[in-house]
Amino acid sequence: MTTRVDLLPRRALPVLRLAAFVAVLASFAVFFAGAQQAHAAPACGVLSSGAAPQANSAVNAACSLIGTPYSWGGGHGSQPGPSYGICDASNGAPNDCHVKGLDCSGMVRYAYDLAVGTDVINGVTTTQWNSSRAVARFYRGDGTGPLLPGDLVFFGNTPSTIHHVAIYLGQGYIAEAPYSGGYVQVAALSSHGDYYGAIRLYGPGGNPGPPGGGRYWVDTFANASVYGSPTSTNSTGTLYQGTNYVFCKAWGREIRNGSSFNHWWLKTDPDVGPAGQWVSAYYLSKWGNDEAKDNNGTVIPDC
């Protein structure tokens, strides 16, 4: 007996092929949706540990501003906070005088004001970068490994062309006021190709830079190179031999000559170079290995 095999009508084949094609498209859609979700920015918040309480508070304050409109010049009134910006088509802001919001430097200014209750980082981006309140300073060559939540990260190819600032959240992410027409958002630091460097306003111990930290007078026995951080190897200026003031100390890379050495670094304003740099306590005239005291013998406090 012959077994009967029922074949599909020829007219059904195109329908099946179409269904299979749709199924393949759906699988690709699921794949790419999953890939996009895997690379989506995280929820705004403190994404790593080690920062000062004030810095963590600044991150949380910045996160509370998510969705605030960008306004070029916004946030630079007599008091921190959203304000109407400047209409300037040449700077990509043709309508910003009608938008109440914050620009990038206005946003970080307001976030820190909300966090610590005082206006600690006023000014435009280049002014903020040069702030003498910085207790640590990092550069592109240092990488992003040393960064902590609350650090202010700057973008530009040179100090004079810095054009953008944001607050570091941790794990490679920032909170920023991005551009005219945009809103305060979370983004990857790597989404900007011209990261220049960063400053820290409060050390892990919570101590601020000047004027809150006070000054300690020390004698140095030679002209000394200064650096942007206690671990940096790129000199940023010079502190001349003599009596100088410092603000606080941090543990860093060793400076050694024979049996003389020191791991302590002192935050100071050098004679040559930007304010808020670091000099090795090796150059102190009155003290020995791994000591960091002022001329009166007072131990210089941690930053």
Rank of each mutant, 00 (worst) to 15 (best):
P274Y: 08
R200I: 05
A224R: 01
F138N: 00
H39V: 12
N262P: 08
A177Y: 11
R140N: 04
S259P: 01
L47S: 15
D142L: 02
D194R: 00
R11L: 15
P94N: 11
S235V: 03
Y70H: 12
A177L: 12
N262I: 05
V299N: 07
A111S: 12
Y70W: 10
T126Y: 09
L7Q: 07
G117F: 07
N244D: 13
C87T: 00
S232C: 01
N130M: 09
Q277T: 01
V124W: 08
T243G: 13
A55L: 12
A222H: 06
L8Y: 14
K286P: 04
Y227T: 01
D219S: 14
A23W: 12
F221Y: 13
A29Q: 02
D269M: 03
F155S: 02
P9L: 15
T298F: 08
A19S: 07
Q277F: 01
Y227A: 02
T161E: 00
N244Q: 14
V30C: 03
S190I: 13
R215H: 13
D269Q: 05
W72G: 00
G156W: 02
S27V: 14
C97E: 01
V22K: 13
L189H: 15
F221A: 07
R215P: 13
L65H: 03
S83P: 09
V46H: 07
A52D: 11
G288H: 05
G77H: 07
